[in-house]
């Protein structure tokens, strides 16, 4: 009796194992072709996390590039954007001996050891969007330079307010490194090329939707002659647009900065915002995959001065810090915003 029930439990366990084996089998049919087949370059794309529209867009670009260059590309990634979860996927890529790994790092140092182990195993490492320490990757695909980001925002606001008048900046937090660097460059750029524009105030919304909303309201009250607001942060620009679109200043005060199409679509369509900037993640993914392929095939070493063809984007040169610059930031307006979903 006792034995019978135990035998039943052993049988159940056997059933369990059969189902496990079957699940593994199911994966085999699709997994077989993207293993480390000789000749073909296999590329693994590891974004910060899966299910993120920004990275879905960059992966779509990478897939297009892989198809054009005859490489196979597989996207893997954790659900949460944490470095420890990313390490497992880097390890897996090392085990598979893939030709190249494209990573957007969740931490610049924490995934370094894992990346270097993968490189020791022969995998080329390309970072994009978010870089690691320079000694843990072969190339970094830089989406934009600080100068480029500062200049495009100044150019946009200058164009929108007609080249003269008062403007203000709605930034993230007072000690945000990126934003502060950009603001400093924007000030220089304004002084040099737009002497008729005066920057009257810089306020901080702390990358919090409600705070940014309130700061926008306060800006408009304390500066009745304000003609434009620049918000170099995606949270800030969306909150400011929400305030502006319901206020009587809509159409009078221009708003631009760094935003994402999905957040800004409504305000571009209703005329609150004419144009805003950001890089194009699809192009970024495309260029990353092209560079990964060029590294894996040995076409480039990743040394400064190396040049490679990146399909429809043209020729690129590796810069001194082993990085490749995507180009000028991309300007989104009513004409092109519907082409993007992130």
């Amino acid at each position: 009796m006792k034995f019978l029930s135990k035998r039943a439990s052993a049988l159940a366990a056997l059933g369990l194992s059969a189902s496990l084996v079957l699940t593994a089998c199911g994966g085999d049919s699709e997994g077989g072709e993207n293993g480390s087949a000789d000749g073909d370059v296999s590329i693994t794309m590891l974004p910060k996390n899966l299910g993120n529209p920004y990275f879905d867009t960059s992966t779509a670009g990478a897939e297009a590039a892989a198809e054009e260059s005859g490489a196979t590309l597989e996207e893997v990634g954790p659900q949460e954007a944490s470095p420890d979860a990313q390490v497992q996927y880097i390890n897996t890529a090392a085990q598979q001996g893939v030709g190249a790994l494209i990573v957007s790092a969740n931490d610049p140092t924490a995934i370094c050891d894992a990346l270097n182990e993968a490189r020791d195993a022969g995998t080329k490492v390309v970072t994009f969007d978010s870089d690691t320490e320079a000694d843990c990757r072969d190339l970094f695909i830089n989406q934009a330079t600080a100068e480029g980001i500062a200049k495009v925002q100044v150019d946009l606001i200058a164009e929108q307010i007609g080249g003269s008048g008062e403007i203000a900046i709605l930034s993230a937090s007072a000690n945000a490194t990126n934003q502060n660097a950009w603001i400093e460059m924007m000030e220089t750029e304004l002084e040099a090329n737009h002497p008729d524009i005066t920057l009257v105030d810089t306020v901080y919304g702390d990358d919090d939707d409600q705070t940014s909303f309130d700061k926008t309201a306060a800006l408009l009250q304390s500066h009745p002659n304000l003609k434009g607001i620049v918000s170099p942060t995606t949270v800030g620009i969306a909150a400011a647009a929400r305030y502006l679109s319901d206020s009587d200043k809509k159409g009078e005060v221009s708003l631009t900065g760094l935003g994402t199409p999905n957040q800004m679509r409504e305000y571009v369509e209703n005329g609150t915002v004419e144009a805003f900037a950001l890089w194009n993640p699809e192009d970024l993914g495309y260029l990353a995959a092209m560079a990964a392929n060029a590294l894996a095939t040995g076409e480039i070493e990743g040394n400064p001065g190396d040049t490679f063809e990146a399909g429809e984007l043209g020729e690129y040169t590796v810069e001194d810090d082993n990085s490749v610059l995507l180009g000028e930031p991309f300007v989104y307006n009513a004409d092109n915003i519907d082409d993007f979903d992130f």
Partner: peptide, 19 residues
């Protein structure tokens, strides 16, 4: 072992969690 083998097969994290 199951998680490692599935990752090597390129199975996504969602499916591994389901299993």
């Amino acid at each position: 072992v199951v998680a490692s083998a599935l990752r090597l097969e390129g199975i996504t994290v969602n499916v591994i969690n389901i299993i």
